[in-house]
């Protein structure tokens, strides 16, 4: 990558900036409780520039392929069941229907789509709940085939795991009780006890860019932050806006404050040693972007994130 000419690098930067701009409508609609101002776009672009080092565009993934003869794909087909690491705590992304006990949500739909493509039956899936901090371990140890769990593709994570193309574009925002009366992100974080999910991009961000928080509480799952916030043990939560709006949906006394501090493209994490599965999943996502994605968005996210959103465009390695 370092040997590449200046041109593509500039283009990548521009792409990232464009992605951030594209993400802004999400941030805008997600923060209905705290309307964003016109000046929100530049910080988002800055954030995108900060997270993307010139040598790495995290959203680039292997070219799609429907070839199923590779070792990882054949192993799954032989086993007859896809083992997927998911979350059951992210409202509208991966959560349990208390009436049926079934897992459901935007992430879960993608897993079902992959199972249907590989095994012919969307229900041939064994779901494993993976805490935020254990996602990389689960992939590395091979205890799951893939992880679809609001997981941000980052350059640092690419050292440990491979990702599919991005299937969603999010950014980090702050959740605070309405009673706190915070207007800006700084109001919400400065001198406050802030909660993040352990090993999340939010933790990375706050450790690298402290916002004057009084303390940083790390929990197993971003939703645990809402419990602590309701019990008065923390003052604010930093998490992806996609998750943040889910929290605001569960508790009408909290609000999401923008703008997005970072650029968070979600991808399906797959072991680096299974490039055949990455390519196969990218092929599934190719189809998924045209129709199923919009249906799933409509079902799970539209009420919270606004109408008319589209999936981020696939970005392939040369």
């Amino acid at each position: 990558m370092n040997t590449k000419s200046r041109g593509p690098r500039m283009r990548r930067l521009r792409t990232a900036a464009l992605a951030a701009v594209l993400a802004t409508p999400l941030a805008l609609t997600s923060a209905q409780a705290a309307p964003l101002q016109a000046g929100d776009r530049p910080p988002a672009v800055r954030a995108a520039a900060l997270t993307d080092t010139p040598s790495c565009d995290p959203t680039k993934s292997l070219r799609p392929s429907t070839d199923e003869s590779g070792p990882a794909v054949s192993a799954i087909k032989k086993r007859g069941v896809l083992i997927a690491g998911v979350d059951q705590n992210s409202y509208r992304w991966g959560f349990r229907d208390p009436a049926t006990g079934q897992l459901q949500g935007f992430d879960i739909d993608i897993v079902h789509a992959i199972a249907k493509a590989l095994l012919g039956d969307p229900n041939k899936v064994q779901f494993k709940m993976v805490p935020t901090a254990k996602r990389i371990d689960a992939i590395k140890s091979g205890s799951v085939d893939l992880i679809a769990r609001t997981m941000t593709i980052t350059c640092a994570r690419l050292n440990d795991t491979a990702f599919s193309t991005a299937y969603f574009q999010a950014g980090q925002q702050v959740v605070v009780p309405k009673a706190a009366g915070a207007k800006t992100v700084d109001d919400a974080l400065k001198g406050k006890r802030v909660c993040v999910a352990d090993s999340s991009t939010a933790q990375d961000y706050l450790e690298k860019n402290p916002r004057g928080q009084a303390s940083l509480t790390k929990v197993g799952n971003a939703l645990d932050c809402l419990v602590l916030m309701q019990l008065g043990q923390v003052d604010a939560t930093l998490t992806d806006n996609a998750i943040a709006v889910g929290q605001a949906a569960q508790d009408p006394t909290v609000q999401v404050i923008g703008p997005s501090l970072t650029n968070e493209p979600y991808g399906v994490a797959i072991s680096k040693s299974s490039p055949d599965l990455v390519a196969r999943v990218n092929a599934v996502l190719e189809d998924y972007r045209h129709g199923p994605w919009q249906d799933s968005y409509h079902r799970w996210l539209e009420d919270y994130l606004g109408r008319g959103a589209q999936p981020p465009a696939a970005n392939y390695l040369p």
């Binding site: 059951q88 409202y91 349990r96 197993g220 939703l223 645990d224 419990v227 508790d251």
Partner: peptide, 16 residues
Amino acid sequence: ADDRQGLPLGAAYLRY
């Protein structure tokens, strides 16, 4: 109460 409303927050409370 949270679980009955279908909110995953219920599971988080139970864990807590």
